[in-house]
Design a protein around this nucleic acid. Sequence first.
DNA 1: TTTCATTTTTGTCCTAGACAAAATAGTATT
DNA 2: AATACTATTTTGTCTAGGACAAAAATGAAA
Lengths: 293, 293
Amino acid sequence: MKIQQLSKEIGIGIDTLRIWERRYGFPIPGRDARGHRSYAQDQVEALQLVKNLMNFGLRPGKIFTLTEQQRRAQLQSLLDQGQPSDKRLQRLIDALAPQQIAQAITAMREELGLHRFIQEIAVPLLQLLDHRWTTGNISIAREHLLSDQLEKLLKTELFAPTNTDHPQLLFLTLSGERHKLGLLLAAAAFNSAGINCIWLNEELPLSEVPGLAHELGVAGVALSFSSHYLPRQAKQDLGSLRKQLDQKIKLIAGGHAVHQFTSLPNLLICTDLQLIPQLVRRHFNDPRVTPSN
Amino acid sequence: MKIQQLSKEIGIGIDTLRIWERRYGFPIPGRDARGHRSYAQDQVEALQLVKNLMNFGLRPGKIFTLTEQQRRAQLQSLLDQGQPSDKRLQRLIDALAPQQIAQAITAMREELGLHRFIQEIAVPLLQLLDHRWTTGNISIAREHLLSDQLEKLLKTELFAPTNTDHPQLLFLTLSGERHKLGLLLAAAAFNSAGINCIWLNEELPLSEVPGLAHELGVAGVALSFSSHYLPRQAKQDLGSLRKQLDQKIKLIAGGHAVHQFTSLPNLLICTDLQLIPQLVRRHFNDPRVTPSN
DNA sequence: TTTCATTTTTGTCCTAGACAAAATAGTATT
DNA sequence: AATACTATTTTGTCTAGGACAAAAATGAAA
Protein backbone atom coordinates (compact mmCIF):
# COMPACT_ATOMS: atom_id res chain seq x y z
CA MET A 1 0.00 0.00 0.00
CA LYS A 2 1.38 3.35 -1.05
CA ILE A 3 1.60 6.32 1.24
CA GLN A 4 -1.24 8.15 -0.45
CA GLN A 5 -3.63 5.24 -0.17
CA LEU A 6 -2.69 4.80 3.46
CA SER A 7 -3.18 8.48 4.13
CA LYS A 8 -6.63 8.33 2.59
CA GLU A 9 -7.52 5.10 4.33
CA ILE A 10 -6.55 6.15 7.83
CA GLY A 11 -7.12 9.85 7.54
CA ILE A 12 -3.64 11.06 8.47
CA GLY A 13 -1.75 13.47 6.25
CA ILE A 14 1.14 12.27 4.12
CA ASP A 15 3.56 14.70 5.71
CA THR A 16 2.43 13.54 9.11
CA LEU A 17 3.10 9.92 8.27
CA ARG A 18 6.59 10.77 7.12
CA ILE A 19 7.45 12.87 10.12
CA TRP A 20 6.16 10.22 12.51
CA GLU A 21 8.56 7.81 10.91
CA ARG A 22 11.37 10.30 11.37
CA ARG A 23 10.51 11.26 14.93
CA TYR A 24 9.01 8.23 16.54
CA GLY A 25 10.29 5.46 14.32
CA PHE A 26 6.80 4.30 13.52
CA PRO A 27 5.48 3.17 11.18
CA ILE A 28 8.57 2.01 9.30
CA PRO A 29 7.36 0.76 5.94
CA GLY A 30 9.19 -1.36 3.43
CA ARG A 31 10.46 0.18 0.24
CA ASP A 32 9.66 -0.77 -3.32
CA ALA A 33 12.15 -0.81 -6.19
CA ARG A 34 11.94 2.96 -6.50
CA GLY A 35 12.62 3.54 -2.85
CA HIS A 36 9.02 4.52 -2.23
CA ARG A 37 7.34 3.59 1.03
CA SER A 38 5.26 0.45 0.91
CA TYR A 39 3.08 -0.34 3.91
CA ALA A 40 2.12 -3.89 4.83
CA GLN A 41 -1.31 -4.80 6.12
CA ASP A 42 -0.22 -5.19 9.74
CA GLN A 43 1.25 -1.71 9.69
CA VAL A 44 -2.05 -0.39 8.44
CA GLU A 45 -3.84 -2.03 11.32
CA ALA A 46 -1.29 -0.87 13.87
CA LEU A 47 -1.73 2.63 12.53
CA GLN A 48 -5.49 2.39 12.75
CA LEU A 49 -5.05 1.53 16.40
CA VAL A 50 -2.97 4.66 16.86
CA LYS A 51 -5.60 6.73 15.09
CA ASN A 52 -8.32 5.31 17.28
CA LEU A 53 -6.37 6.29 20.37
CA MET A 54 -5.87 9.77 18.98
CA ASN A 55 -9.61 10.05 18.45
CA PHE A 56 -9.89 9.70 22.21
CA GLY A 57 -7.62 12.69 22.63
CA LEU A 58 -4.31 10.95 23.29
CA ARG A 59 -1.30 12.59 21.70
CA PRO A 60 1.30 10.88 19.52
CA GLY A 61 4.05 11.48 22.05
CA LYS A 62 2.20 9.36 24.60
CA ILE A 63 0.97 6.72 22.21
CA PHE A 64 4.34 6.00 20.69
CA THR A 65 5.95 5.29 24.07
CA LEU A 66 3.56 2.36 24.50
CA THR A 67 3.98 -1.11 23.16
CA GLU A 68 1.32 -2.47 20.85
CA GLN A 69 -0.18 -4.53 23.70
CA GLN A 70 -0.38 -1.48 25.90
CA ARG A 71 -2.06 0.42 23.11
CA ARG A 72 -4.67 -2.25 22.71
CA ALA A 73 -5.27 -2.34 26.46
CA GLN A 74 -5.52 1.43 26.59
CA LEU A 75 -8.05 1.53 23.77
CA GLN A 76 -10.05 -1.24 25.37
CA SER A 77 -10.24 0.53 28.70
CA LEU A 78 -11.26 3.75 27.01
CA LEU A 79 -13.94 1.93 25.07
CA ASP A 80 -15.20 0.19 28.19
CA GLN A 81 -15.96 3.54 29.76
CA GLY A 82 -18.71 3.85 27.21
CA GLN A 83 -22.25 3.02 28.13
CA PRO A 84 -23.29 -0.62 28.47
CA SER A 85 -25.11 -2.04 25.52
CA ASP A 86 -28.83 -2.48 25.43
CA LYS A 87 -30.28 -5.87 24.58
CA ARG A 88 -32.63 -4.40 22.02
CA LEU A 89 -29.69 -2.83 20.25
CA GLN A 90 -27.82 -6.07 20.42
CA ARG A 91 -30.69 -7.77 18.65
CA LEU A 92 -30.77 -5.08 16.01
CA ILE A 93 -27.10 -5.44 15.28
CA ASP A 94 -27.29 -9.18 15.00
CA ALA A 95 -30.16 -9.14 12.53
CA LEU A 96 -28.84 -9.30 9.05
CA ALA A 97 -31.69 -9.26 6.60
CA PRO A 98 -32.68 -5.68 5.82
CA GLN A 99 -36.33 -6.55 6.20
CA GLN A 100 -35.81 -7.65 9.78
CA ILE A 101 -33.78 -4.57 10.59
CA ALA A 102 -36.33 -2.28 9.01
CA GLN A 103 -39.20 -3.97 10.85
CA ALA A 104 -37.46 -3.81 14.19
CA ILE A 105 -36.54 -0.16 13.76
CA THR A 106 -39.97 0.97 12.66
CA ALA A 107 -41.57 -1.02 15.46
CA MET A 108 -39.41 0.74 18.02
CA ARG A 109 -40.09 4.09 16.47
CA GLU A 110 -43.85 3.46 16.63
CA GLU A 111 -43.61 2.34 20.21
CA LEU A 112 -41.48 5.13 21.54
CA GLY A 113 -42.32 8.13 19.42
CA LEU A 114 -39.69 10.06 17.53
CA HIS A 115 -38.13 11.90 20.40
CA ARG A 116 -37.63 8.89 22.64
CA PHE A 117 -36.61 6.80 19.65
CA ILE A 118 -33.80 9.19 18.85
CA GLN A 119 -32.62 9.45 22.43
CA GLU A 120 -33.00 5.84 23.47
CA ILE A 121 -32.38 3.93 20.29
CA ALA A 122 -30.73 5.93 17.55
CA VAL A 123 -28.06 7.70 19.57
CA PRO A 124 -26.89 4.63 21.51
CA LEU A 125 -27.09 2.62 18.33
CA LEU A 126 -24.78 5.03 16.57
CA GLN A 127 -22.39 4.90 19.51
CA LEU A 128 -22.50 1.15 19.59
CA LEU A 129 -21.87 0.95 15.86
CA ASP A 130 -18.94 3.27 16.26
CA HIS A 131 -17.67 1.15 19.12
CA ARG A 132 -17.92 -2.08 17.19
CA TRP A 133 -16.38 -0.36 14.23
CA THR A 134 -13.27 0.78 16.04
CA THR A 135 -12.79 -2.64 17.56
CA GLY A 136 -13.32 -4.36 14.24
CA ASN A 137 -16.08 -6.26 15.94
CA ILE A 138 -18.73 -5.91 13.27
CA SER A 139 -18.60 -6.59 9.58
CA ILE A 140 -18.58 -3.53 7.39
CA ALA A 141 -21.53 -4.92 5.47
CA ARG A 142 -23.63 -5.29 8.61
CA GLU A 143 -22.72 -1.83 9.75
CA HIS A 144 -23.71 -0.37 6.41
CA LEU A 145 -26.98 -2.23 6.24
CA LEU A 146 -27.92 -1.00 9.66
CA SER A 147 -27.02 2.62 9.12
CA ASP A 148 -28.76 2.45 5.76
CA GLN A 149 -32.02 1.43 7.37
CA LEU A 150 -31.67 4.01 10.08
CA GLU A 151 -31.01 6.67 7.49
CA LYS A 152 -34.03 5.61 5.51
CA LEU A 153 -36.30 5.87 8.53
CA LEU A 154 -34.96 9.24 9.57
CA LYS A 155 -35.29 10.69 6.11
CA THR A 156 -38.86 9.51 5.89
CA GLU A 157 -39.55 11.25 9.17
CA LEU A 158 -37.73 14.34 8.10
CA PHE A 159 -39.46 14.75 4.79
CA ALA A 160 -42.86 13.37 5.61
CA PRO A 161 -44.56 16.52 6.87
CA THR A 162 -44.36 18.79 3.84
CA ASN A 163 -43.76 21.86 5.84
CA THR A 164 -45.95 24.78 5.18
CA ASP A 165 -43.60 27.53 6.13
CA HIS A 166 -40.41 28.62 4.47
CA PRO A 167 -37.29 26.65 5.31
CA GLN A 168 -35.47 27.64 8.41
CA LEU A 169 -32.43 25.44 8.77
CA LEU A 170 -30.13 24.03 6.13
CA PHE A 171 -28.31 20.83 7.05
CA LEU A 172 -25.23 19.81 5.16
CA THR A 173 -21.72 18.47 5.47
CA LEU A 174 -18.63 20.01 3.92
CA SER A 175 -16.55 18.27 1.30
CA GLY A 176 -14.56 15.52 2.94
CA GLU A 177 -17.03 14.86 5.71
CA ARG A 178 -18.76 11.63 4.91
CA HIS A 179 -20.43 10.90 8.20
CA LYS A 180 -23.93 12.19 7.90
CA LEU A 181 -25.92 10.04 10.27
CA GLY A 182 -25.26 12.09 13.34
CA LEU A 183 -26.29 15.25 11.56
CA LEU A 184 -29.37 13.48 10.27
CA LEU A 185 -30.32 12.66 13.85
CA ALA A 186 -29.88 16.29 14.74
CA ALA A 187 -32.04 17.30 11.80
CA ALA A 188 -34.76 14.92 12.92
CA ALA A 189 -34.54 16.36 16.40
CA PHE A 190 -34.81 19.90 15.10
CA ASN A 191 -37.68 18.84 12.91
CA SER A 192 -39.57 17.33 15.80
CA ALA A 193 -38.97 20.56 17.71
CA GLY A 194 -40.90 22.36 15.02
CA ILE A 195 -38.09 23.64 12.84
CA ASN A 196 -38.49 23.34 9.11
CA CYS A 197 -35.37 21.60 7.81
CA ILE A 198 -33.68 21.23 4.46
CA TRP A 199 -31.36 18.30 4.09
CA LEU A 200 -28.60 18.42 1.52
CA ASN A 201 -27.35 14.92 1.04
CA GLU A 202 -24.18 15.65 -0.86
CA GLU A 203 -21.06 17.24 0.50
CA LEU A 204 -20.60 20.86 -0.45
CA PRO A 205 -17.43 22.92 -0.81
CA LEU A 206 -17.11 25.64 1.76
CA SER A 207 -17.32 28.39 -0.82
CA GLU A 208 -20.75 27.29 -2.02
CA VAL A 209 -22.40 27.41 1.36
CA PRO A 210 -23.01 31.15 1.81
CA GLY A 211 -24.55 31.55 -1.62
CA LEU A 212 -26.86 28.61 -1.17
CA ALA A 213 -27.92 29.66 2.30
CA HIS A 214 -28.70 33.10 1.02
CA GLU A 215 -30.64 31.92 -2.03
CA LEU A 216 -32.70 29.54 0.03
CA GLY A 217 -33.31 32.24 2.56
CA VAL A 218 -32.68 30.01 5.53
CA ALA A 219 -32.35 31.29 9.06
CA GLY A 220 -29.41 29.07 9.82
CA VAL A 221 -26.93 26.49 8.61
CA ALA A 222 -26.12 23.35 10.57
CA LEU A 223 -22.97 21.34 9.99
CA SER A 224 -21.33 18.38 11.61
CA PHE A 225 -17.70 17.41 11.84
CA SER A 226 -16.96 13.83 12.76
CA SER A 227 -13.83 12.58 14.43
CA HIS A 228 -12.29 12.07 11.01
CA TYR A 229 -12.38 15.78 10.36
CA LEU A 230 -9.29 17.50 11.67
CA PRO A 231 -10.38 19.80 14.51
CA ARG A 232 -8.04 22.46 13.29
CA GLN A 233 -9.59 22.31 9.85
CA ALA A 234 -13.06 22.39 11.34
CA LYS A 235 -12.21 25.49 13.32
CA GLN A 236 -10.77 27.19 10.30
CA ASP A 237 -13.74 26.24 8.14
CA LEU A 238 -16.21 27.47 10.69
CA GLY A 239 -14.34 30.72 11.11
CA SER A 240 -14.22 31.24 7.39
CA LEU A 241 -17.89 30.41 7.05
CA ARG A 242 -18.86 32.75 9.83
CA LYS A 243 -17.05 35.56 8.06
CA GLN A 244 -18.66 34.91 4.70
CA LEU A 245 -22.14 34.30 6.01
CA ASP A 246 -24.68 37.00 6.64
CA GLN A 247 -24.62 37.88 10.32
CA LYS A 248 -28.32 37.18 10.59
CA ILE A 249 -27.85 33.59 9.55
CA LYS A 250 -27.15 31.32 12.48
CA LEU A 251 -24.36 28.82 12.31
CA ILE A 252 -24.68 25.57 14.22
CA ALA A 253 -21.93 22.98 14.49
CA GLY A 254 -21.83 19.54 16.03
CA GLY A 255 -19.76 16.39 16.04
CA HIS A 256 -16.64 15.04 17.69
CA ALA A 257 -14.27 17.42 15.98
CA VAL A 258 -15.90 20.47 17.58
CA HIS A 259 -16.47 18.83 20.94
CA GLN A 260 -13.92 20.82 22.84
CA PHE A 261 -14.30 24.12 21.05
CA THR A 262 -14.65 27.18 23.10
CA SER A 263 -17.56 28.65 21.25
CA LEU A 264 -16.60 31.08 18.53
CA PRO A 265 -18.52 34.32 18.30
CA ASN A 266 -21.97 33.96 16.81
CA LEU A 267 -21.67 30.22 16.49
CA LEU A 268 -23.72 27.60 18.29
CA ILE A 269 -21.88 24.46 19.27
CA CYS A 270 -24.22 21.58 19.88
CA THR A 271 -22.68 18.27 20.82
CA ASP A 272 -25.64 16.82 22.64
CA LEU A 273 -28.87 16.11 20.84
CA GLN A 274 -30.79 16.40 24.08
CA LEU A 275 -30.04 20.09 24.17
CA ILE A 276 -31.73 20.75 20.87
CA PRO A 277 -35.21 21.50 22.18
CA GLN A 278 -33.70 23.99 24.59
CA LEU A 279 -31.58 25.48 21.85
CA VAL A 280 -34.62 25.86 19.64
CA ARG A 281 -36.52 27.60 22.40
CA ARG A 282 -33.68 30.00 23.00
CA HIS A 283 -32.76 30.86 19.44
CA PHE A 284 -35.63 30.06 17.14
CA ASN A 285 -38.99 30.23 18.83
CA ASP A 286 -38.75 33.78 20.01
CA PRO A 287 -40.94 35.72 17.57
CA ARG A 288 -38.64 38.69 17.75
CA VAL A 289 -35.78 36.63 16.38
CA THR A 290 -37.42 35.25 13.26
CA PRO A 291 -35.40 35.05 10.06
CA SER A 292 -37.04 38.17 8.78
CA ASN A 293 -35.40 40.54 11.20
CA MET B 1 -5.63 31.02 0.58
CA LYS B 2 -3.11 28.37 1.59
CA ILE B 3 -1.95 25.64 -0.72
CA GLN B 4 -3.89 22.95 1.10
CA GLN B 5 -7.17 24.80 0.90
CA LEU B 6 -6.60 25.50 -2.76
CA SER B 7 -5.79 21.87 -3.41
CA LYS B 8 -9.00 20.79 -1.72
CA GLU B 9 -11.06 23.44 -3.44
CA ILE B 10 -9.91 22.77 -6.99
CA GLY B 11 -9.12 19.10 -6.67
CA ILE B 12 -5.48 19.23 -7.72
CA GLY B 13 -2.77 17.72 -5.55
CA ILE B 14 -0.41 19.89 -3.55
CA ASP B 15 2.64 18.45 -5.25
CA THR B 16 1.05 19.08 -8.60
CA LEU B 17 0.42 22.72 -7.80
CA ARG B 18 4.04 23.19 -6.79
CA ILE B 19 5.45 21.48 -9.85
CA TRP B 20 3.20 23.45 -12.18
CA GLU B 21 4.67 26.57 -10.66
CA ARG B 22 8.16 25.21 -11.27
CA ARG B 23 7.55 23.96 -14.80
CA TYR B 24 5.00 26.26 -16.33
CA GLY B 25 5.33 29.34 -14.18
CA PHE B 26 1.68 29.20 -13.21
CA PRO B 27 0.16 29.82 -10.81
CA ILE B 28 2.72 32.01 -9.04
CA PRO B 29 1.29 32.82 -5.63
CA GLY B 30 2.37 35.47 -3.20
CA ARG B 31 4.22 34.51 -0.05
CA ASP B 32 3.33 35.17 3.55
CA ALA B 33 5.74 36.11 6.32
CA ARG B 34 6.89 32.51 6.63
CA GLY B 35 7.59 32.15 2.94
CA HIS B 36 4.51 30.00 2.46
CA ARG B 37 2.47 30.24 -0.73
CA SER B 38 -0.59 32.42 -0.54
CA TYR B 39 -3.04 32.35 -3.43
CA ALA B 40 -5.23 35.30 -4.32
CA GLN B 41 -8.81 34.89 -5.48
CA ASP B 42 -8.07 35.60 -9.14
CA GLN B 43 -5.45 32.87 -9.16
CA VAL B 44 -8.02 30.49 -7.81
CA GLU B 45 -10.39 31.35 -10.62
CA ALA B 46 -7.70 31.13 -13.27
CA LEU B 47 -6.82 27.72 -11.92
CA GLN B 48 -10.42 26.62 -12.01
CA LEU B 49 -10.44 27.53 -15.70
CA VAL B 50 -7.40 25.34 -16.24
CA LYS B 51 -9.07 22.51 -14.37
CA ASN B 52 -12.18 22.82 -16.50
CA LEU B 53 -10.12 22.57 -19.66
CA MET B 54 -8.40 19.51 -18.27
CA ASN B 55 -11.79 17.96 -17.67
CA PHE B 56 -12.26 18.10 -21.43
CA GLY B 57 -9.09 16.09 -21.86
CA LEU B 58 -6.66 18.91 -22.62
CA ARG B 59 -3.24 18.46 -21.12
CA PRO B 60 -1.36 21.00 -19.02
CA GLY B 61 1.36 21.37 -21.64
CA LYS B 62 -1.17 22.66 -24.14
CA ILE B 63 -3.18 24.72 -21.72
CA PHE B 64 -0.23 26.61 -20.32
CA THR B 65 0.92 27.79 -23.76
CA LEU B 66 -2.37 29.70 -24.10
CA THR B 67 -3.17 33.12 -22.78
CA GLU B 68 -6.07 33.47 -20.39
CA GLN B 69 -8.27 34.84 -23.18
CA GLN B 70 -7.44 31.90 -25.39
CA ARG B 71 -8.27 29.55 -22.56
CA ARG B 72 -11.66 31.12 -22.10
CA ALA B 73 -12.32 30.97 -25.83
CA GLN B 74 -11.24 27.35 -25.95
CA LEU B 75 -13.52 26.40 -23.09
CA GLN B 76 -16.39 28.25 -24.69
CA SER B 77 -15.99 26.47 -28.00
CA LEU B 78 -15.83 23.13 -26.23
CA LEU B 79 -18.93 24.07 -24.33
CA ASP B 80 -20.79 24.91 -27.50
CA GLN B 81 -20.27 21.41 -28.83
CA GLY B 82 -22.44 20.03 -26.07
CA GLN B 83 -25.80 18.57 -26.90
CA PRO B 84 -28.71 20.97 -27.10
CA SER B 85 -30.69 21.07 -23.93
CA ASP B 86 -34.33 20.24 -23.50
CA LYS B 87 -36.46 23.10 -22.32
CA ARG B 88 -38.05 21.05 -19.57
CA LEU B 89 -34.61 20.10 -18.31
CA GLN B 90 -33.50 23.68 -18.59
CA ARG B 91 -36.38 24.72 -16.41
CA LEU B 92 -35.52 22.03 -13.89
CA ILE B 93 -31.93 23.14 -13.68
CA ASP B 94 -32.81 26.78 -13.27
CA ALA B 95 -35.21 26.17 -10.43
CA LEU B 96 -33.46 26.64 -7.17
CA ALA B 97 -35.86 26.07 -4.35
CA PRO B 98 -36.02 22.39 -3.50
CA GLN B 99 -39.78 22.55 -3.34
CA GLN B 100 -40.01 23.72 -6.93
CA ILE B 101 -37.62 21.05 -8.13
CA ALA B 102 -39.46 18.34 -6.27
CA GLN B 103 -42.80 19.49 -7.63
CA ALA B 104 -41.56 19.62 -11.20
CA ILE B 105 -39.95 16.20 -10.96
CA THR B 106 -42.94 14.48 -9.43
CA ALA B 107 -45.26 16.15 -11.93
CA MET B 108 -43.21 14.78 -14.81
CA ARG B 109 -43.05 11.38 -13.25
CA GLU B 110 -46.85 11.33 -12.87
CA GLU B 111 -47.33 12.47 -16.41
CA LEU B 112 -44.94 10.09 -18.11
CA GLY B 113 -44.95 6.98 -15.94
CA LEU B 114 -41.78 5.59 -14.44
CA HIS B 115 -40.36 4.03 -17.54
CA ARG B 116 -40.68 7.04 -19.79
CA PHE B 117 -39.64 9.32 -16.95
CA ILE B 118 -36.37 7.46 -16.60
CA GLN B 119 -35.68 7.39 -20.32
CA GLU B 120 -36.81 10.86 -21.24
CA ILE B 121 -36.07 12.91 -18.16
CA ALA B 122 -33.76 11.24 -15.72
CA VAL B 123 -31.12 9.96 -18.14
CA PRO B 124 -30.74 13.17 -20.16
CA LEU B 125 -30.87 15.14 -16.96
CA LEU B 126 -27.97 13.16 -15.56
CA GLN B 127 -26.01 13.71 -18.74
CA LEU B 128 -26.75 17.39 -18.73
CA LEU B 129 -25.77 17.69 -15.09
CA ASP B 130 -22.53 15.92 -15.76
CA HIS B 131 -21.85 18.22 -18.69
CA ARG B 132 -22.56 21.36 -16.73
CA TRP B 133 -20.59 19.98 -13.86
CA THR B 134 -17.40 19.31 -15.79
CA THR B 135 -17.57 22.71 -17.40
CA GLY B 136 -18.21 24.47 -14.17
CA ASN B 137 -21.35 25.83 -15.75
CA ILE B 138 -23.68 25.07 -12.90
CA SER B 139 -23.21 25.92 -9.30
CA ILE B 140 -22.28 22.95 -7.23
CA ALA B 141 -25.10 23.75 -4.87
CA ARG B 142 -27.66 23.68 -7.65
CA GLU B 143 -26.31 20.42 -8.98
CA HIS B 144 -26.50 18.84 -5.58
CA LEU B 145 -29.99 20.06 -4.87
CA LEU B 146 -31.18 18.63 -8.14
CA SER B 147 -29.56 15.22 -7.81
CA ASP B 148 -30.76 15.13 -4.25
CA GLN B 149 -34.35 15.51 -5.32
CA LEU B 150 -33.97 13.00 -8.10
CA GLU B 151 -32.46 10.54 -5.69
CA LYS B 152 -35.28 11.05 -3.27
CA LEU B 153 -37.90 10.35 -5.91
CA LEU B 154 -36.16 7.25 -7.18
CA LYS B 155 -35.68 5.83 -3.72
CA THR B 156 -39.32 6.36 -2.94
CA GLU B 157 -40.19 4.46 -6.09
CA LEU B 158 -37.71 1.77 -5.31
CA PHE B 159 -38.80 1.14 -1.76
CA ALA B 160 -42.49 1.88 -2.01
CA PRO B 161 -43.77 -1.60 -2.92
CA THR B 162 -42.66 -3.66 0.06
CA ASN B 163 -41.80 -6.63 -2.00
CA THR B 164 -43.30 -9.90 -0.98
CA ASP B 165 -40.71 -12.22 -2.35
CA HIS B 166 -37.12 -12.64 -1.25
CA PRO B 167 -34.60 -10.20 -2.66
CA GLN B 168 -33.16 -10.94 -6.02
CA LEU B 169 -30.68 -8.22 -6.89
CA LEU B 170 -28.26 -6.35 -4.64
CA PHE B 171 -27.22 -2.89 -5.85
CA LEU B 172 -24.11 -1.29 -4.47
CA THR B 173 -21.00 0.69 -5.32
CA LEU B 174 -17.47 -0.21 -4.32
CA SER B 175 -15.34 1.98 -2.08
CA GLY B 176 -14.18 4.99 -4.02
CA GLU B 177 -17.16 5.11 -6.33
CA ARG B 178 -19.27 8.00 -5.21
CA HIS B 179 -21.56 8.35 -8.18
CA LYS B 180 -24.66 6.41 -7.31
CA LEU B 181 -27.36 8.11 -9.30
CA GLY B 182 -26.83 6.12 -12.48
CA LEU B 183 -26.99 2.87 -10.58
CA LEU B 184 -30.08 4.09 -8.80
CA LEU B 185 -31.73 4.66 -12.16
CA ALA B 186 -30.81 1.12 -13.14
CA ALA B 187 -32.25 -0.20 -9.90
CA ALA B 188 -35.48 1.64 -10.54
CA ALA B 189 -35.60 0.18 -14.03
CA PHE B 190 -35.02 -3.33 -12.72
CA ASN B 191 -37.64 -2.74 -10.09
CA SER B 192 -40.23 -1.65 -12.62
CA ALA B 193 -39.37 -4.77 -14.60
CA GLY B 194 -40.49 -6.84 -11.64
CA ILE B 195 -37.17 -7.55 -9.98
CA ASN B 196 -36.97 -7.24 -6.23
CA CYS B 197 -34.06 -4.94 -5.45
CA ILE B 198 -31.95 -4.20 -2.40
CA TRP B 199 -30.16 -0.90 -2.41
CA LEU B 200 -27.03 -0.47 -0.31
CA ASN B 201 -26.37 3.21 0.01
CA GLU B 202 -22.87 3.11 1.37
CA GLU B 203 -19.78 2.12 -0.51
CA LEU B 204 -18.50 -1.33 0.34
CA PRO B 205 -14.97 -2.72 0.15
CA LEU B 206 -14.57 -5.42 -2.47
CA SER B 207 -13.83 -8.08 0.10
CA GLU B 208 -17.17 -7.63 1.85
CA VAL B 209 -19.33 -8.15 -1.20
CA PRO B 210 -19.32 -11.94 -1.57
CA GLY B 211 -20.16 -12.54 2.05
CA LEU B 212 -23.02 -10.10 2.02
CA ALA B 213 -24.43 -11.40 -1.24
CA HIS B 214 -24.34 -14.90 0.13
CA GLU B 215 -25.93 -14.01 3.46
CA LEU B 216 -28.72 -12.11 1.78
CA GLY B 217 -29.23 -14.95 -0.66
CA VAL B 218 -29.54 -12.70 -3.67
CA ALA B 219 -29.55 -13.97 -7.22
CA GLY B 220 -27.24 -11.26 -8.45
CA VAL B 221 -25.10 -8.24 -7.63
CA ALA B 222 -25.20 -5.05 -9.69
CA LEU B 223 -22.41 -2.47 -9.61
CA SER B 224 -21.62 0.70 -11.46
CA PHE B 225 -18.32 2.35 -12.29
CA SER B 226 -18.46 5.99 -13.28
CA SER B 227 -15.96 7.79 -15.47
CA HIS B 228 -14.00 8.71 -12.38
CA TYR B 229 -13.24 5.06 -11.71
CA LEU B 230 -10.12 3.92 -13.51
CA PRO B 231 -11.18 1.34 -16.13
CA ARG B 232 -8.19 -0.80 -15.24
CA GLN B 233 -9.24 -0.86 -11.64
CA ALA B 234 -12.81 -1.66 -12.59
CA LYS B 235 -11.70 -4.60 -14.68
CA GLN B 236 -9.52 -5.91 -11.92
CA ASP B 237 -12.25 -5.51 -9.34
CA LEU B 238 -14.83 -7.25 -11.47
CA GLY B 239 -12.49 -10.12 -12.19
CA SER B 240 -11.68 -10.52 -8.54
CA LEU B 241 -15.32 -10.37 -7.61
CA ARG B 242 -16.31 -12.92 -10.20
CA LYS B 243 -13.74 -15.31 -8.78
CA GLN B 244 -14.88 -14.88 -5.19
CA LEU B 245 -18.58 -14.95 -5.92
CA ASP B 246 -20.66 -18.11 -6.12
CA GLN B 247 -21.03 -19.03 -9.77
CA LYS B 248 -24.81 -19.05 -9.44
CA ILE B 249 -24.86 -15.41 -8.46
CA LYS B 250 -25.06 -13.12 -11.44
CA LEU B 251 -22.76 -10.14 -11.71
CA ILE B 252 -23.98 -7.05 -13.53
CA ALA B 253 -21.84 -4.02 -14.24
CA GLY B 254 -22.61 -0.65 -15.76
CA GLY B 255 -21.19 2.84 -16.08
CA HIS B 256 -18.71 4.72 -18.22
CA ALA B 257 -15.65 2.87 -16.96
CA VAL B 258 -16.93 -0.48 -18.28
CA HIS B 259 -18.30 0.92 -21.50
CA GLN B 260 -15.70 -0.58 -23.79
CA PHE B 261 -15.24 -3.85 -21.99
CA THR B 262 -15.33 -7.02 -23.96
CA SER B 263 -17.64 -8.92 -21.67
CA LEU B 264 -15.83 -11.08 -19.17
CA PRO B 265 -17.06 -14.62 -18.64
CA ASN B 266 -20.21 -14.85 -16.57
CA LEU B 267 -20.58 -11.12 -16.30
CA LEU B 268 -23.34 -8.97 -17.72
CA ILE B 269 -22.29 -5.57 -18.99
CA CYS B 270 -25.18 -3.17 -19.17
CA THR B 271 -24.43 0.35 -20.33
CA ASP B 272 -27.87 1.20 -21.65
CA LEU B 273 -30.82 1.38 -19.34
CA GLN B 274 -33.18 0.66 -22.20
CA LEU B 275 -31.83 -2.84 -22.46
CA ILE B 276 -32.82 -3.72 -18.93
CA PRO B 277 -36.29 -5.13 -19.66
CA GLN B 278 -34.77 -7.37 -22.29
CA LEU B 279 -31.99 -8.40 -19.94
CA VAL B 280 -34.49 -9.25 -17.26
CA ARG B 281 -36.49 -11.38 -19.67
CA ARG B 282 -33.41 -13.25 -20.74
CA HIS B 283 -31.79 -13.86 -17.38
CA PHE B 284 -34.33 -13.52 -14.64
CA ASN B 285 -37.82 -14.34 -15.72
CA ASP B 286 -37.13 -17.91 -16.71
CA PRO B 287 -38.59 -19.98 -13.84
CA ARG B 288 -35.88 -22.59 -14.23
CA VAL B 289 -33.26 -19.99 -13.37
CA THR B 290 -34.61 -18.76 -10.07
CA PRO B 291 -32.15 -18.07 -7.25
CA SER B 292 -33.00 -21.37 -5.65
CA ASN B 293 -31.44 -23.54 -8.31
C1' DT C 1 -7.97 27.23 42.05
C1' DT C 2 -7.09 30.47 38.33
C1' DT C 3 -3.89 33.26 35.16
C1' DC C 4 -0.08 34.11 32.68
C1' DA C 5 4.46 33.13 30.60
C1' DT C 6 7.65 29.56 29.02
C1' DT C 7 8.83 25.27 27.01
C1' DT C 8 7.72 21.18 24.39
C1' DT C 9 5.15 18.90 21.07
C1' DT C 10 3.19 18.48 16.66
C1' DG C 11 1.62 19.19 11.94
C1' DT C 12 2.25 21.61 7.70
C1' DC C 13 4.99 23.92 4.62
C1' DC C 14 9.54 24.60 2.16
C1' DT C 15 13.28 23.31 -1.79
C1' DA C 16 15.00 20.59 -5.36
C1' DG C 17 15.73 16.21 -7.35
C1' DA C 18 14.23 11.49 -9.18
C1' DC C 19 11.51 8.39 -11.77
C1' DA C 20 7.55 5.53 -13.57
C1' DA C 21 3.06 5.64 -15.74
C1' DA C 22 0.50 7.75 -19.34
C1' DA C 23 0.26 10.09 -23.58
C1' DT C 24 2.14 11.24 -27.99
C1' DA C 25 4.85 10.68 -31.93
C1' DG C 26 7.29 7.90 -34.95
C1' DT C 27 8.21 3.57 -37.40
C1' DA C 28 7.36 -0.85 -39.19
C1' DT C 29 4.04 -4.43 -40.61
C1' DT C 30 -0.20 -6.50 -42.28
C1' DA D 1 -4.75 3.00 -45.06
C1' DA D 2 -5.16 0.73 -40.78
C1' DT D 3 -2.87 -1.71 -36.99
C1' DA D 4 0.89 -2.85 -33.84
C1' DC D 5 5.02 -1.94 -31.82
C1' DT D 6 8.80 1.22 -30.05
C1' DA D 7 10.87 5.55 -28.61
C1' DT D 8 10.22 9.95 -26.68
C1' DT D 9 8.02 13.41 -24.19
C1' DT D 10 4.95 14.80 -20.68
C1' DT D 11 3.14 14.63 -16.19
C1' DG D 12 2.15 13.50 -11.42
C1' DT D 13 3.76 11.55 -7.28
C1' DC D 14 7.32 10.36 -4.44
C1' DT D 15 11.92 11.32 -1.80
C1' DA D 16 14.92 13.85 1.93
C1' DG D 17 15.81 16.81 5.59
C1' DG D 18 15.08 21.50 7.22
C1' DA D 19 12.13 25.29 9.21
C1' DC D 20 8.62 27.27 11.92
C1' DA D 21 4.05 28.55 14.03
C1' DA D 22 0.00 26.86 16.36
C1' DA D 23 -1.47 23.96 20.08
C1' DA D 24 -0.66 21.68 24.28
C1' DA D 25 1.70 20.99 28.45
C1' DT D 26 4.25 22.73 32.14
C1' DG D 27 5.59 25.72 35.73
C1' DA D 28 5.34 30.01 38.43
C1' DA D 29 2.84 33.61 40.54
C1' DA D 30 -1.46 35.61 42.20
